[in-house]
Design a protein around this nucleic acid. Structure first.
Lengths: 140, 140
DNA sequence: TAAAATGTTCGACGGAGGTCGATCACCATG
DNA sequence: CATGGTGATCGACCTCCGTCGAACATTTTA
């Protein structure tokens, strides 16, 4: 899935009312969101099949909504790559973003995404943090 | 994830008894399986983030175990690519394979995979068959 | 207004992975 | 043994995508 804003190859989904007409900043006008119900399973799986993006999701679930700006995440990539990953998550309906001042705050779209893809976020949030010492409990 | 048999870069997971010592054919000795409990979430998501592989999973769930050979699937790829996709699914713990004569029969590892990744297979099996006419029911 | 902070966008690079034709290995059947 | 069927393997090709530095835009702060 292409994230570039001028990519219009896919058929445009029906528009969805997202903003409540509040005064939004200049940057906020370029913020296009996709509702999880309009996301294909392929795009949802592709978005979550990346360790950096799953880290974002996990950190986001650890705090309250609209409290984490993009720059406050502990990620092993530069801010350019970081921005790319946030865009992918946004276009996949995983997160919602809002501009506050010069910062872009994030929110995990837990209920909507759960309704569209039940159990998928739970798998990500319960993922062992790459500790590699899984216990290997009893099984035939 | 590399599927090539001689790729030994990753740390070898603890061996798991898979065969019950039955007389197996020559080809079956090169058949390495991975239990879903030993599969990372990244590999599971990556394996299912492909439309061809999800088609295999869906067709496999539509029939009984050990009734479908690799060549009997309706896929838009050549047999080389087909073989590759089956290997990816096998290494991700999604399917199990068994050689019978010159054919390789398949089985979806439903209970084991469900135990390791609850709800993930359900999402794939309930996927709208790319019909693109999703109903857009009521939501705020 | 100048400077700093926060993110996005652009172009480029490199690796990973999906795809293919050709070939090989194994099995069944004549 | 020869032939055909089934599937794996190999090498090559090509696209996608994660990554980066640099430049730009917007907002806040000094």
């Amino acid at each position: 899935m292409n994230v570039r804003p001028e990519s219009n190859t896919s058929s445009t989904p029906p528009p969805r009312p997202a903003d409540e007409g509040r005064t939004q900043s200049q940057r906020a006008r370029n913020l296009s969101h996709v509702h999880p119900a309009d996301v294909t399973l392929n795009d949802a799986l592709t978005a979550l099949a990346d360790p950096v993006r799953r880290t974002i999701v996990r950190e986001l679930a650890g705090g309250s909504d609209w409290t984490r700006a993009c720059g406050t995440f502990d990620l092993p990539v530069t801010k350019a790559t970081r921005s790319h990953h946030f865009a992918v998550l946004r276009q996949a309906g995983v997160i919602e973003q809002r501009d506050v001042g010069s910062r872009r705050l994030n929110r995990l779209r837990r209920p909507e995404f759960d309704a569209a893809f039940p159990g998928l976020l739970d798998l990500v949030l319960s993922e062992r943090r790459e500790s590699s010492h899984h216990s290997n409990t009893d099984r035939p």
